[in-house]
Design a binder for these strands. Structure first.
Lengths: 172, 172, 172, 172
DNA sequence: GATGAATGAGTCTTCATTCAT
DNA sequence: TATGAATGAAGACTCATTCAT
């Protein structure tokens, strides 16, 4: 519902109703609407992270790992459209400021940092690389979603998308 | 205010107050809040378009024109942060569906279409190219904004950003 | 309603309904419930003050003025029971802390201060005299109200109440 | 908590938490919040009564007993401010109507009744004497509390307070 | 055209109370 | 006897919109 109507546009009463619980029950578990919105974010984020963790190993070589993660992220996004969109929506909203700044790094964070250090990726600030990566992934997701492509077309585009970003980010 | 607090988060009463007019006056000029939000979008969009039109000519060669537009867009975005952010915010929101689908093409739309036709840009659907382009621009804007770079650093990053996207989108 | 059900016990919606206006109208005039509660207090307080001002003059002798004010206050209280009770209720509640501390003194404040200075009243701190006075007045009000006396009985009791407090507060 | 935030302003959940028991446990012992509020009142009232009973005897002479009780009540009030304030707060609230009207008389009730009968106190209705007495005591408590006096100053004021009320209530 | 008081549906949140475990 | 999750009615407050002046 948050994806469909936005955070402000979704009433807690409707959420509770949809969840099949009473209004007050929601607030028994989440003290405020903001807390709920944040909890959902963390939950989705962890789910995506877990799904990436399941197919990579710390010992993997960086280059293929990069491809694996990119591809897997997009496939996950397309199979979990609402969830993926939620992440974007949340990160672009003021809610993002509420995320407790633990220093727990993502697989992707670590991969990029290592790629830069070993001169496999361009020697830009990790933050820049990450931002461009995320926007590229989201751009691809947006296109595929809106064009409503068939599955094999989707895979082809993701493949091309990978080539593009790799050409863009790999070390000279 | 819409940028700072979001569309839902900004009350029309506050907008009117900030504008120095009475509550009802707002609704005298814009029948609904949605109409106001849309009008602001169109206004900003036109302003950006005009600023790009002022520095390009139909007769320009495609390759340099592409660079000019990319660079000018980013500089405009950094000098009009609120306005640029408004565009993104609007386009990612349900409000975007309210934009009347005239077939008036942007300079960028036409440039991309022509670039593809003449095999200067990759022969992907124009829609894909455009989406990736927009996300790349926004990614750069996001990074520069958050990193709070000095002006000459900004220019350097924009330049690099251009090289990256050109490498990504140019034909073969 | 505040007197009957208490501040917390009275819903703003009920107040609006009783007033014959819409719910939102209340909040158009008073930003919060607290503000309304305070405004009513100030209004009643001013009304009582005005009614006392109408029957006294700065030039009056202190002793008869004291009697006049005491008696008038009690008669006013009995003719405006809700209003008088409201004052007490408010002053004993946490709301009292919200009263802006202007240094505008009451007729009674000035009278007591002058009475002490001229050694017509006991030379106690004015604050003590005032507190005892107010509690005595309220005690009398409480008794008369609960005993539900006839008008002439009321006057008799007020008269006795005056003798009591005068004996208690007058200078040796 | 009831003193600090008022009856309505204090949530049963908070009371339970503060008491270190679960939410439901409270309602296991007191069927409703009102019942709890009343129980606390009775408990405090009994405590004060017991403390007065401990220092008086039925056989005491009325005049000194009156002084003893007055003085002891005020000292108790100052050492048990929350409890004493609770009594007032309760008695001025609609909760007071819930007190079961047993005819169990207070030491003070009996003392006043006897004082009037024996013409040691003014021959007013006992109810009037009692009300004025209670308000005087509370007035003194209010003043001492707000003025934040040192202990020996407190004792002096209580002494003076006693002289005042005795002068006011004693026969002729 | 401009105003701003009035509206009332809608929002988030609180809270006394219940009840299965 | 103790628990605490669940409840849902109620509360204070917001806000886009209307309309008489």
């Amino acid at each position: 519902m948050f994806v469909e109507y936005g955070f402000h546009g979704t009433a807690t009463a409707k959420v509770a109703q949809e969840a099949g619980v009473a209004n007050g029950t929601l607030f028994h578990h989440y003290k405020t609407k903001d807390e709920l919105v944040l909890a959902i974010y963390v939950w989705i984020k962890d789910e995506l992270e877990a799904s990436l963790a399941a197919i990579t190993h710390d010992s993997d070589f960086i280059t293929p790992k990069f491809k694996t993660i990119f591809t897997a992220t997009l496939h996950w996004a397309l199979q979990n459209r609402g969830k993926f969109y939620y992440l974007r929506q949340f990160e672009l909203s003021p809610h993002y400021a509420n995320v407790p700044t633990g220093d727990n790094q993502t697989i992707l964070d670590r991969l990029i940092a290592e790629g830069i250090r070993r001169k496999i990726l361009r020697t830009h600030p990790a933050e820049l690389i990450l931002t461009l990566y995320n926007n590229h992934v989201f751009g691809l997701y947006q296109y595929i979603t809106q064009a409503d492509l068939e599955p094999n077309k989707q895979t082809a585009i993701i493949s091309e998308g990978y080539e593009m970003i790799w050409g863009m980010l790999k070390y000279a």
